[in-house]
Amino acid sequence: MKNALGSVDSVLLLGGRSEIGLAIVERLVRDGARHIVLAARGGTTADAGDEPQVAGSARPAEAADGPQVAESAHAMDAAVVRLKKLGAEVFVIGFDATRPETHGQVIDSAVDLVGDLDVVIPAFGVLGDQATYDADPVSAAESITVNFGGHVSAGLFAARRLREQGHGTLVVLSSVAGVRVRRANFVYGAAKAGLDGFAQGLGDALHGSGVRVMVVRPGFVIGRMTKGMTPAPMSTTPAAVADAVVQGLRDGTETLWVPGKLRLLFTVMRALPRPLWRRLPR
């Protein structure tokens, strides 16, 4: 239960290796959360045990996923150790964003492990780049399946559970990329635009149920996902996003811009005429 001072006890992170997701979870644990479920591709359905699970044995998919996934898997293992050191009970379960038919089961498993879910954070996603999507439209459709479709099924299953329990917050990681879609990354931006709209609609549908949806709109996040890219102006970091999310949970914020000044910037950006907008360098 969220307490009188806005601290929570249980958190489900879908996309358990997400840098932003883990940063949020770590802050919530520092603030008192004690029951954590990390749902990640290749995770097992058992308790994470005393030692972090060794990559490879529990996650057969990793080798095929390449070095970036191996790196994030390592980050999750390290996070599990840190979270436990901070006093939390941590469970790792399997989750595949591309298989919506399994998402209900994932939510149920999390509830079996920790009871009521105070915060659910679907943090999975792929960035990709527009040139690759142009060259391989199938990969573009697959990215939409993760960045939008997966969030819709996971979000709706989570919302059903939260509605039953009469409390809880769904944290949806949208992006300024979806506030107004740019030509430089319009496949990613379109997915985020869809997700943003979905999250707002879901939040309105849940109004009065005791459940909240918080839409988070970070700017360019300097982190593992954007490694090698030049940061855009008003960029942010996973740590800054996480700080803002934790404060937003405390305050019951519905729409969160990180950094906050992006709200004003995008009021202007949304009003820019198309001929001007399409000339933006990136």
Binding site: N3, L5, G166
Partner: peptide, 14 residues
């Protein structure tokens, strides 16, 4: 559903 709190008026739930 009715939203209830305690006397401190924090953390309402339905």
């Amino acid at each position: 559903m009715t939203f209830l709190t305690g006397w401190g008026r924090t953390a309402p739930t339905p």
